[in-house]
Nucleic acid binder design. Structure first.
Ligand SMILES: [Mn+2]
Ligand SMILES: [Mn+2]
Ligand SMILES: [Zn+2]
Ligand SMILES: [Zn+2]
Lengths: 156, 156
DNA sequence: CCCTTCTCTTGACTCAGTCAAGACAACCGG
DNA sequence: CCGGTTGTCTTGACTGAGTCAAGAGAAGGG
C-alpha cells in the first residue's frame, strides 16, 4: 500500500505537479499555517510558484481530502495535513498560536446538540480559546497579571 | 432594576444614540444577522445611518457585552443579543442558516481539553455543521439523496 | 447653555481570497 | 518517444468584509 504524496495525489484524482509537491512539503513540516506562509516557504524549493497557485493547490488538496482547512475567527485560514481524525484546536487570543487537541470521544461528530432543531449534524467543530503558555508569561511580566477581562464574554 | 436599552447602554459606559438604538432594535427582532442586513433593516427607522456606523455600533455593543459576534467559517460575521449564556450554534452547510443550541449532551471532553498544551482556556466554542430541515428536503427532491460527499472531510 | 468628549459621516484603504484568460505541463494513447 | 487532450499554473483584474482617519456633529456633565 503506497503512501507517497505522488500516490495520494493520484488516488485523489489529482495530477502530480511541482507546486503541489512543494506545498505538501511545507505542510509536512509546519502545522496550522496560512496560505501566505505556505507560499513563502514553498518558494524556497520552487521559486516561481504564484500566490494564486498556492490557493488553487490548497483548494485541490482540501477537496481531495489530503489537507484540512480551519478558519479561526478573525484570522486567515490555516491548513494542516492531519485529516480524518476529528481533532480539535486550542487558539491563543494573544498571538494566534494553534495547538491540536485529540478528541476524547473519537468519531465525528464527537458531541450531540441537546436539540438539533431538525438539523442533520455531520461534524462538531470545537475551538478552545485562551492564552498559550508563552503569552501567559509575557502578560505577567508586563503587569497585566491577575484577573484580566478577556474578550468574548462567556467563560466556560 | 432597569433593563431598557438606554439603561444597558449607559451602564456599559456607552452614550445613548439613535444609531445604537436602531441597531439594538434590529437585533431584538432578528437573531444571527450580518452587518449588512442590520444596516438595511436599521435604515428603515433611521435612514441616514452609514455602513461604518453599523460596524462601529456593533463593535461598541460587543465590547460592552450587549451583543455577541460569531464568525462561522466562510461567511461574514453574525451578531445576536443572547449573551453570557455560553450557548452554541448549528450551521447549515447549504444555506448558512444558524440555530441556537443550549448545550451539548453526552461526554463533555469539550469543556476541558484532555491535554491543554499549557494553554489557559477561557471559552469552548462549538459549531455543529450539517443540513437544516429545509435543505434536507430540497436535496431529496433534486436527486441528491442518500450518501453525498459533504465538504469538510469527516462524515458522521 | 456651553464645553468636552464621544460618536457618526465620509471616503480612502487593507487584506484574504476569487475569477477569468491564456500559457504551460502532466499523462494517456499510439 | 511523440502528439493531443485536459487539468493546472501564471498573470492580472477584481470582490467583499472590514478597518482607519479626519472632521462634523451630538450627548450629556457642569
Ligand atoms: Mn490541527
Ligand atoms: Mn446564538
Ligand atoms: Zn500566545
Ligand atoms: Zn439550510
Amino acid at each position: 500500500m503506497e503512501t507517497t504524496w505522488e500516490h495520494r495525489l493520484r488516488s485523489a484524482g489529482l495530477r502530480v505537479t511541482r507546486p503541489r509537491l512543494s506545498v505538501l512539503g511545507v505542510l509536512a513540516e509546519h502545522s496550522h499555517v496560512d496560505a501566505d506562509t505556505i507560499a513563502t516557504a514553498a518558494r524556497v524549493v520552487h521559486p516561481s510558484i504564484s500566490p494564486q497557485a498556492v490557493y488553487g493547490v490548497l483548494k485541490a488538496l482540501v477537496g481531495g481530502g489530503l489537507a484540512r482547512r480551519i478558519e479561526p475567527a478573525g484570522a486567515p485560514a490555516l491548513y494542516e495535513l492531519r485529516v480524518g481524525d476529528n481533532h480539535h484546536h486550542l487558539v491563543c487570543r494573544e498571538c494566534g498560536d494553534v495547538a491540536d487537541v485529540d478528541c476524547a470521544v473519537g468519531a465525528a461528530p464527537c458531541l450531540t446538540p441537546s436539540d438539533a432543531a431538525g438539523f442533520v449534524v455531520d461534524e462538531a467543530e470545537v475551538v478552545f480559546w485562551g492564552l498559550c503558555a508563552g503569552c501567559q508569561v509575557a502578560r505577567r511580566q508586563h503587569g497585566y497579571g491577575a484577573g484580566i477581562a478577556i474578550r468574548g464574554g462567556a467563560t466556560a
